[in-house]
């Protein structure tokens, strides 16, 4: 494997070319993107409460939970990230039995995640 020196040669040789990471405007844009993601994905998770979900709904819900978990980490919302990751794992089990009523604890997890993210939106 090649070493990890900069392409120009010696370590740090191009340090001056590197800009500071994650300036405030980037952080702000990340939060804006997360807000859009929350507004798009959370309503779909809330649909789990309504009917007995089929496979496609479960797959989408799991994808939503997965994305929200990773994105919440990026914006520093650790609790929401943990909740989303737990929901994602629970939905994985549900996928083995699509068209079965979701266990109450899964629905509660979805509701809790929606609540956490709703609170984030209001902040």
């Amino acid at each position: 494997m090649p070493d990890e020196r900069s392409p120009a040669g010696a370590p740090g040789a191009q340090a001056s070319r590197r800009r500071a990471a994650l300036p405030p405007d980037v952080v702000a844009s990340l939060r804006a993107a997360f807000e859009q993601e929350v507004r798009r994905r959370v309503p779909r998770l809330c649909r789990l409460q309504r009917d007995v979900p089929g496979r496609a709904v479960l797959v989408q819900a799991q994808r939503d939970a997965h994305s929200l978990a990773s994105s919440a980490v990026v914006v520093g919302e650790a609790e929401a990230a943990r909740c989303a990751r737990a929901l994602e794992g629970a939905l994985e089990q549900c996928l083995l039995q699509p068209f079965a009523p979701l266990p109450p604890e899964v629905l509660a997890q979805a509701e809790r995640l929606a609540g956490l993210l709703d609170a984030w939106l209001r902040r």
Partner: peptide
Amino acid sequence: DSAVQRRFLRAAVEADAD
């Protein structure tokens, strides 16, 4: 597939002018 991740990655990568 996440816009948040793409934005973060773009920022992280382009913090290096290489």
